[in-house]
């Protein structure tokens, strides 16, 4: 069993290590996200004051919940499927992707492990810095009103952990799908241009999904990208319990399975008619 997993663990380890090396990028990203988060929070504070007078008891989220939501979104920005694996895009252009097909490994799992490692390698340093900044530093600096609040209970924290792991797997599956699109179209541009904005908006990253008009709420909760940010955030805030919690996790698992199955089918078809570039 362990033997069977060896190549995939190795792919994960190698990608994790190379991604972690981009320390300056992680620091720059963190600073940008602090700035962006702060601006977002000021805008929400102004809106809440105008619309609801104060903390906004009538709003779907209270202001302090929205602030926590913004910080979590900023901390987990790297969880978004930002596009096809850039190494694979290069390999497709130069024809070196042939070497991925020359390995005695299941290509889908191989790419899935690489994608997971790359997302985690980008996510973990940024998320830890952001949690330290918004969760620990801000309250100690007397800015508790603008800080990230911890989940209300251990159970909520555990649910958040499960949900974010499902989100990670879904994001990696989407990246693999984008890799396949790149192999088919020989360019990463098309797939990335479609998926990235969709993911940013529909995950709640730009605006919490709960703040969208009421008529769209059911659709927004049910669509796959909710699992990349909005649902984990709701677990963190402690607003999903019991049947609704099970439904939300089930929804995430179902989309994950659907995208994985679709990806495997697309890859099989692609390999059937593949033409590697270059003589």
């Amino acid at each position: 069993m362990m033997q069977a997993a060896t190549p995939y663990l190795a792919a994960f380890r190698a990608r994790w290590r190379t991604t972690l090396r981009y320390r300056a990028a992680a620091l720059a990203g963190f600073v940008t996200q602090c700035w962006w988060g702060a601006i977002n929070i000021m805008i929400y504070a102004a809106f809440y004051r105008m619309a609801h007078g104060g903390d906004g008891a009538a709003a779907p989220f209270a202001l302090h919940q929205t602030i926590t939501y913004v910080w979590i979104m900023q901390a987990t920005l790297a969880l978004m499927p930002w596009g096809c694996d850039p190494d694979i895009a290069d390999a497709v252009r130069g024809g070196a992707v042939a070497h991925d097909l020359l390995r005695p490994v299941d290509l889908w799992w191989w790419w899935f492990c690489r994608a997971t490692a790359r997302i985690l390698g980008r996510l973990v340093p940024r998320a830890l810095l952001m949690l330290a900044f918004a969760g620990l530093l801000l309250p100690r600096a007397g800015l508790g009103a603008w800080a990230l609040h911890p989940p209300p209970s251990i159970a909520d924290a555990a649910l958040f952990a499960v949900s974010i792991l499902l989100g990670l797997a879904l994001s990696a599956c989407i990246v693999v799908l984008l890799n396949i699109v790149t192999v088919r179209t020989l360019s990463p541009a098309g797939g990335n241009a479609v998926i990235t904005p969709l993911a940013l908006i529909l995950s709640g990253n730009m605006l919490p999904l709960a703040l969208f008009p009421g008529a769209f709420q059911t659709v927004l909760i049910l669509q796959p990208f909710a699992g990349l940010g909005d649902l984990p955030c709701r677990f963190w805030l402690g607003t999903l319990h019991g049947g609704r919690a099970i439904l939300a996790l089930g929804q995430q698992a179902a989309w994950l399975a659907a995208v994985a199955v679709a990806g495997r089918a697309a890859l099989r078809r692609t390999l059937h008619r593949l033409e590697i570039q270059g003589g």
Binding site: T6, A10, A11, A14, T18, D87, P104
Partner: peptide
């Protein structure tokens, strides 16, 4: 004309990765 080694990895790390890939 194409490399099968990993651009960013030291040569020996690439070898270790191949060891795991080919078990």
């Amino acid at each position: 004309q194409r490399s099968q080694l990993w651009w960013d990895l030291p040569v020996d790390d690439g070898f270790a990765l191949l060891r795991d890939i080919y078990r």
